[in-house]
Computed example of a mutant assay.
Amino acid sequence: MNNVVHHLIDLLKLERVSEHHFVGRSQDIGFPKVFGGQVVGQGLSAATQTVENRHPHSLHCYFLRPGDSSQPIEYHVEVVRDGRSFSLRRVTANQFGKCILAMTVSYHIEEMGLDHQAAMPNVPGPECFQSELSLYRAHANEIPEKVRGLFTADRPIEYRVVENQNPFRPRPDMPRRHMWIRSVEALPKDPLIHQSMLAYTTDYGFIQTALLPHGISINNPNLNVASLDHAIWFHRDFCLDDWLLYVADSPSASHSRGFARGQIFNRSGQLVASTAQEGLIRYNGE
């Protein structure tokens, strides 16, 4: 298995210290702060390991403090309720005795019922686009040297953006983005691996959708962006080692906050998950 994929699977498994206490390693991706998607994915993994015969259908979390990417993270899971159909877990992620993330995850038994969904947008397939990584490598000379290795390194998830632009000199555009995503290698059949890896992936580039109308690069030195919260709803089964279309739009930005919402479809057109996020966007440019 590809080293970067194996590393991510291992990162999301966690070390189980006791029944409701887990420890996760931090991923150093070149920044002092922990990537928010890592904490979301690890938190979901911790909660799910305390539940039997039920699947996560939603999670909601708040990023309370920036995490230190050089230090491990402790996860404490509280059993809030185990009912006949639903279970609820509350998770806190801690470093240095302080909470960096608070999350609730709800679980549901397998149950049949009414079924409908929004239609998948009609966009070309992933084979029509270059990977985002190849674009970064093509524009490597525009990346500051101190972070060039970070942006051009191998990744466990491949991203192919339909509305491809030069990521360092974007032009103003509609606040909408279509991105094909998948693991760069086949994954084990364990649903928790696919769910926690998708949770990890959904935070990547999500709030950047709110920057599109303004033509501002995420790498702009006058820009400060940070995720404030994150929510995911799992609707249907999916495989992250097959292409999924992540559709994101940003209906609002105000008061130094941007809001984004997302839909994730498989190649058959099934809506498998939905997301929402608000992020801090402080811009001190002209």
Rank of each mutant, 00 (worst) to 15 (best):
V39F: 00
N224S: 07
I100F: 03
S256N: 15
G149W: 05
G205M: 11
F31A: 12
N3P: 08
L101F: 04
D241H: 10
I143P: 10
H178T: 10
S69Y: 14
F63N: 07
G149N: 11
P144C: 06
W180E: 10
V23R: 11
K146D: 12
D242A: 05
F151C: 05
G215I: 04
F96V: 11
A253L: 02
R176S: 06
L12C: 14
Y246L: 03
F35M: 11
G258I: 01
R182C: 08
V184G: 00
S134F: 03
D154T: 11
L114R: 13
G149Q: 14
G67V: 05
P66F: 08
T202M: 14
H139C: 06
R89N: 02
W243G: 04
L150V: 14
Q195G: 06
F31W: 15
M174P: 00
S183Y: 04
V105T: 12
H57V: 06
L64P: 11
G279S: 11
F86L: 13
S106E: 05
Q165D: 07
G43D: 02
C99M: 02
V79Q: 10
N164V: 11
Q95W: 00
T92K: 15
I100K: 02
I29F: 13
F259S: 01
N122F: 03
L11V: 12
Y283H: 12
S106T: 06
Y200N: 00
Y62E: 05
C99L: 04
Y246K: 01
F259P: 01
R177H: 10
L211G: 12
E185A: 15
K146I: 07
P188G: 08
L44Q: 03
P167R: 12
P66T: 15
F31R: 07
G279R: 06
N141G: 06
P251I: 13
R25F: 02
A260W: 00
A46Y: 00
D28S: 10
H214W: 13
S58Q: 09
E185M: 05
P167F: 01
L14T: 13
L133H: 02
Y159D: 02
M112W: 07
V5N: 10
L280M: 08
H60W: 06
R148M: 07
S268Q: 15
I73C: 00
A47Q: 05
D82Y: 09
R182V: 08
D190G: 08
G258Q: 04
Q277E: 09
P213F: 15
M197W: 03
T104H: 09
R137V: 04
P213R: 15
T152A: 10
L228C: 05
H139D: 02
F96T: 13
I218P: 06
F129V: 05
N166F: 01
P172E: 04
R81D: 06
L240M: 04
F86C: 07
C239M: 09
Y200G: 03
L11E: 15
L228I: 09
E278L: 08
F234R: 02
T202L: 13
D173F: 02
A153V: 09
T275W: 01
I100W: 06
Q117V: 03
D249M: 04
P170D: 04
V247P: 00
A199C: 11
G24N: 07
N219F: 11
G215T: 12
F259W: 07
D115K: 08
L135S: 14
D229V: 10
R160Y: 09
I9E: 08
A140G: 08
G285K: 03
Q130K: 15
G262V: 05
E74W: 03
R137N: 11
A210Y: 14
